[in-house]
Nucleic acid binder design. Structure first.
Lengths: 196, 196
DNA sequence: CACACTCGTGCACTGAGTGTAAATTGCTTC
DNA sequence: GAAGCAATTTACACTCAGTGCACGAGTGTG
């Protein structure tokens, strides 16, 4: 009984959820985030406005849907890395799950364009990524040499790495997705870690 | 004529603005951000709700008022530093303007508590600090050795430094403000820059 | 067939944020 | 000091995001 509580229900729920998000993002991209009402999204998806809130906490989540999820993927991948690997190397490897997600360059550019165009969305995005720290820092901490303030150090490393990814991502979008994201990421990391 | 265009008007405006922000933050701290309506803030400040929007763009700005301003202060201080100084040293010096602002440790703790308690505020805060990058990166860039991707490098450095400040600030608040903020900041910076 | 349980939906409500036009206030000029 | 101009305040009406609630449809169970 407890084995498979509602496998089918959950499945449909996931499908509907991603369908709604997809519809919403299309509309946002076409008309702009602020100029798209939830009534319109609901109508386009053939569902009631009230139901949107059944699947998403708020309008922002409708646009940023996958981000929390991505954080969990990254953390999971990090946890799989050998415990004696350098934290930065593990982080880099963990971030690469993002490339494995089935997401075309076009869609990613669309997303980033959406994000840059709206302050509230940028804010939500920044916050979501900041929450990645909460997942990663505890995993980094045991890899650091003993010292007080290890928690702070772990958090700083997580935050800095995420920040580099973010900077690389922005640059990548600015260049129209024509370069390799991880080349940019490596450049960013080297820039902050180089003793010079 | 152009010498003193509206010295008195602007003065009152600044005073009223900080009075409103002060009133708002007090209420937010007392009742919680979400449970405080703008009607209440307006009433407490003896002003109409509509007027609040004359001074602040939105509820969030009422709470985070000073942050953009702080970014400008930091950038200004950075610009004053000798051009051949190491960027990280200049950044550290620039951040210290924050200690010079007349703001008691109590008030800062109050602020941070407010911030941690609300997701939207955390998001707004993160975004505001991310905008500091836009001010700092162009100042950092000319200090870097020639290379392509210098813009990206500058942005990464700015972002990482801000992130360290942020991590230090969180830790500082968690410890109840009993330690020196810049000790924590230095620890964070060392953690990410040490080649180990 | 009766039951519980879930899910979508309509309805009514609160609160943030905006446009507008009238009233008020501060500042300048004669 | 009075008249006139510009900025500010305010009330009013409106849109939209978000929430609570209760009803009804669909499904699975005894």
């Amino acid at each position: 009984m407890a084995r498979k509580p509602t496998p089918l229900r959950e499945q449909t729920r996931t499908v509907v959820r991603s369908l709604l998000a997809r519809t919403a993002v299309e509309l946002f991209a076409a008309k702009g985030y602020d100029d798209t009402t939830l009534d319109e999204v609901a109508a386009a998806a053939g569902v009631s406005r009230r139901t949107l809130f059944n699947y998403f906490r708020n309008k922002e989540d409708l646009a940023l849907g996958g981000l929390s999820e991505q954080g969990e993927l990254i953390a999971a991948r990090f946890a799989e890395r050998p415990a004696d690997e350098d934290a930065w190397a593990s982080l880099r490897a963990a971030f690469q799950v993002l490339e494995e997600i089935g997401m075309t360059a076009e869609r990613r550019l669309e997303m980033i364009t959406l994000l840059f165009g709206n302050e509230a969305l940028r804010a939500g995005h920044a916050e979501k990524q900041a929450r990645w720290q909460d997942l990663l820092a505890p995993l980094i901490e045991p890899r650091l040499p003993d010292s007080d303030r290890r928690a702070l150090q772990a958090r700083a490393i997580a935050a800095a790495a995420i920040t580099c990814l973010q900077a690389a991502n922005e640059e990548w979008a600015r260049l129209g997705g024509q370069v390799d994201l991880f080349d940019l990421y490596d450049t960013a990391v080297r820039a902050i870690r180089r003793p010079a």
